[in-house]
Design a protein around this nucleic acid. Structure first.
Length: 280
DNA sequence: CTACCATCCTGGTTGC
DNA sequence: TGCAACCAGGATGGTA
């Protein structure tokens, strides 16, 4: 569920809550999520101060003052809620709970338990197995068509599948892959390795633009995503193609009733939406 | 090396 | 209304 814009929305909300604060209470209410919560997780965090809250791909990175970094992934259904002042009772699936020295409570809630928590040495963070193979950040200063084309070189899968591969570009999931391809005018079925030159420029620019706009809207709330204050994200109202099979695409003046409008197909087991008229 | 597939899990939606 | 089947935004490990 949460892709880069949703994770970034959560990160931004956590910065003022966590940075510079000490974790006074840490409670792991079950031993595992997608993988076991590291042994002694709560003990290793309790009493530590958080230096920074950053993001890499869809991972949140909480760096502690003692040289240790918490790596946190929301999986498909993970949510983070922040309560200041009096916190309501814990809810079902509130699997990990943190409390800061100024009385904020941070709940990690994940019904499907596809999320994860891990601990890493801050010194060697980039070498951690979860992070080592990630591709470039699409919102990073160096990301452009040339970088993208280089990552796609030799790839014989459809471009849609390649965009979902975190080793190609980091942080893109099913929704934003569909949206970025639409705005770039590229068919999701196109062979990845043929996205070069101007096409790669357009896709890099479209990816950057759609992610940036989604962050500005607080991400997209289809099912699970909430901002940490409980508010919904609003970018779902700005989808051009995702979940809109049969509708007229926003840039088409063609008649959806005649042309079939936005099409749905399944690629490597995942839903793809696109406009065959606009995307080649 | 790349590509494809099943799989982990719960809950919301759809269709009979 | 009740219930079962199906579907979901991710990542990965095994197999081809």
């Amino acid at each position: 569920m949460p892709e880069l814009p949703e994770v970034e929305t959560i990160r931004k909300a956590l910065v003022p809550v966590l940075e510079g604060r000490r974790l006074d209470r840490v409670l792991a209410r079950r031993p595992d999520l997608r993988r076991p919560i590291p042994s002694g997780f709560a003990d290793r965090l309790r009493g530590r101060r958080i230096v920074s809250v950053k993001r890499r791909a869809k991972y949140l990175l909480w760096t502690l003052e003692d040289g240790c970094t918490v790596i946190l992934h929301l999986g498909m259904s993970g949510r983070i809620r922040v309560f200041k002042g009096k916190a309501p009772p814990l809810e079902t699936h509130d699997h990990v709970v943190f409390e800061t020295d100024d009385g904020a409570r941070i709940c990690f809630n994940d019904s499907r338990r596809f999320g994860l928590m891990a601990l890493a040495d801050s010194d060697r963070l980039q070498d951690h197995p979860l992070l080592a193979t990630l591709g470039p950040e699409p919102l990073g200063p160096d990301f452009d068509g040339d970088v993208l084309a280089a990552r796609l070189k030799g790839r014989r899968s459809p471009i849609k599948a390649a965009l979902l591969d975190q080793r190609v570009v980091a942080g893109i999931g099913n929704i934003y892959a569909c949206e970025a391809l639409f705005h770039a005018g590229i068919s999701p079925r196109r062979l990845a390795a043929t996205v070069v030159g101007k096409r790669a420029d357009r896709l890099a620019a479209a990816t950057r633009a759609v992610l940036t706009k989604a962050i500005a809207k607080g991400g997209a709330s289809l099912r699970d995503h909430r901002q940490p204050n409980g508010e919904l994200g609003y970018f779902q109202h700005h989808f051009a193609v995702y979940g809109r099979a049969g509708a007229t695409c926003p840039d088409c003046d063609c008649d959806a009733a005649r042309t079939g409008g936005i099409r749905h197909l399944v690629q490597s087991g995942r839903s793809t939406f696109f406009c065959p008229h606009r995307q080649r």
